[in-house]
């Protein structure tokens, strides 16, 4: 798809978003929405064009992304339940520590997804997420970071990156 067509696509996507939030189809809303969508696309054209590429969203990867979303929702539940148990426990048994994690992911955008996933899953928060090199993870207790080794969510992201 040409650069021009992709920019039109982004304008259309932003326009749909505008209409969704405006909840009005009168002429003023339509014209303003289209102008604003076109302006935002134009100002952010370089970012938007690289963003779609970096995300690797295509037909082949769609099921992997949906699986990723499913895993993430389950892990967010687990993480919140774990924190709730700790918060309401009579005696809080924590052993906070920093742990280095070597990721198999290479691309910056996929590493951002990994850092976000680490933060949303039980017992861990990403502290340093460099473009290259080791992640530094803050773990709430012993063994919390051990789950990051051969982690199913990271393996899924590696699969998405590899398929591209």
């Amino acid at each position: 798809m040409s650069r021009y067509m992709r920019l039109i696509g982004w304008t259309l996507a932003l326009f749909v978003l505008w209409m969704l939030f405006a909840q009005s189809a009168d002429i003023q809303s339509l014209i303003t929405g289209w102008l604003v969508a076109a302006l935002v696309t134009y100002v952010n054209r370089d970012l938007l064009l690289s963003f779609a590429n970096d995300l690797h969203i295509n037909r082949g990867n769609l099921s992997a992304w949906l699986t990723y979303a499913g895993y993430l929702i389950i892990d967010v539940f687990k993480a919140s339940v774990q924190v709730a148990e700790l918060a309401f426990a009579r005696r809080i048994a924590l052993n906070p520590q920093f742990v280095a994690h070597e990721s198999k992911l290479k691309e910056p955008m996929m590493r951002v997804f990994l850092a976000n996933s680490i933060t949303l899953t039980p017992g861990t928060i990403s502290v340093e997420a460099p473009v290259q090199g080791e992640f530094i993870v803050h773990a709430l207790m012993d063994g919390a970071a051990a789950g990051l080794r051969d982690w199913h969510i990271e393996n899924l992201l590696v699969e998405i990156e590899r398929r591209h």
Binding site: V76, F77, S80, V83, L86, L94, T119, I125, H138, L140
Partner: peptide, 21 residues
């Protein structure tokens, strides 16, 4: 958790995860 956990980073575990869900 924010009130009971001992330091800034452990408190962030409480607020980030529970508030998101």
């Amino acid at each position: 958790g924010l009130l009971r956990f001992p330091d800034a980073l452990t408190r962030m575990h409480a607020t980030t995860k529970c508030d998101t869900l």
